[in-house]
Design a protein around this nucleic acid. Structure first.
Lengths: 225, 225
DNA sequence: GTCTATATCCCGATAGAC
DNA sequence: GTCTATCGGGATATAGAC
């Protein structure tokens, strides 16, 4: 597997499972993000350390500080990339479909697929413990996605803004829950399991839409039960 | 720090900020679990360390090893406690209600309330990264809960075992998703927010039950779309 | 922009005394 | 069952040279 080494500065694309990638100068910032994703995929977010990233890249432990304020700052950059990729995988996919209900189901399905196919990126979003107040870029990167989703929900909801919020929350929670359970589940990332979970998510979304009249709180009750 | 030697057993340094608890001898095991829950509540699972727990209890760093093989072994004990408490809060509550659909909604509602009211315990279950193969006690503690849940689902499902699994997964995912979103959400543990999420979870469960005929995969399609 | 070197701190785990 | 002492490791972050 490992390379015979040498070749000083061909493209850095490697940095694979073996190691070897030793590319400095110029694109360290991007390389650090790549390596972070790689390491998170191997040891989880909580197991990620700047030190190990520099080891793998063959640079000095102090090198990252020329590009990131600290460890969390690097993780925040990973989170931004995650939201950007998530957007490109959710919105175009849902654009192909016409009825709003099916669009929502397609987005939910794509959400679960994204979580399975990009586990490290997905993990960063919810398990990194990032302080969003300190890293506004994250919410900025998230916004286009939630906007597209909410637009889609409103196009469907018939009971005003409160009803739209109820439906949106239910779908979000269901998709997120399916993704979490899939990732927690032993580890099996087999395509079968992923597609089963994705399909279940899509169907659950359709079910929620179909029974959306049950989601609202009874009028007259300001708070709730 | 040359020591004046002796002073054999006066009190050792204060344990912590306001944390006077200094109870050794006999129930260290239980005290460690309590302290772990406490610390996890303050710094999260990933921020928990055995060392800090011993500091807070005012015992030696080696003391825990008389009761737990290692750090994960202690966390596993916390997870067991979590499942036990979760069981007592879910099952009796659902026992009060008769129609299976309402029982399921009550369980889902209680699940979200539990997550909010016992955040440290809930976190351990999904964010501790415990190896369940190495800690069979965890699954053993979980089983009664899933059994009660599945029994409830089967009492309701009308399409055989596959349909029951589909419905069970959908409800699990929805409840878990609501809980995760609630805990991720900034931090607000206000009762209002908790009860809103809990109520939404219950209603989403009812909606899924009402449209459960949409959850199944079309017969004849072995895999899925 | 990157490296060398270092300061500082914390953690898990073990050995052996009591 | 608990304590003292310690080993070995790894992490973050900074200072200063190139």
């Amino acid at each position: 597997m490992s390379e015979p080494a040498a070749r000083t500065h061909t493209l850095k694309a490697m940095a694979g499972p073996g190691k070897g990638g030793r590319y400095h100068h110029g694109h360290l910032r991007a390389a650090l993000i790549d390596t972070a994703v790689e390491l998170i995929g191997e040891r989880g977010v909580r197991g990620f350390s700047l030190t190990e990233a520099t080891r793998r890249l063959g640079v000095a432990v102090s090198a990252p500080y020329a590009h990131f304020a600290d460890r969390d700052d690097l993780l925040a950059a990973v989170a931004v990339r995650a939201y950007e990729l998530l957007y490109t995988e959710l919105v175009p996919e849902s654009g192909q479909v016409q009825p709003p209900a099916d669009r929502l189901a397609a987005m939910a399905r794509a959400y679960v697929r994204f979580a399975a196919a990009n586990r490290p990126l997905f993990e960063v979003l919810h398990e990194a413990g990032l302080d969003k107040a300190r890293h506004p870029e994250i919410e900025a990167a998230e916004r286009p996605l939630t906007d597209a989703f909410l637009t889609c929900v409103r196009a469907l909801s018939d009971g005003g803004d409160a009803a739209a919020q109820d439906l949106a929350t239910a779908i979000e929670a269901t998709a997120h829950g399916h993704a979490m359970l899939l990732l927690d589940d032993g580890s099996r990332q087999q395509i079968e399991a992923v597609e089963l979970a994705a399909e279940r998510t899509a169907r659950a979304t359709m079910a929620l839409v179909a029974s959306r009249h049950l989601l609202g709180r009874p009028a007259g009750r300001p708070g709730l039960a």
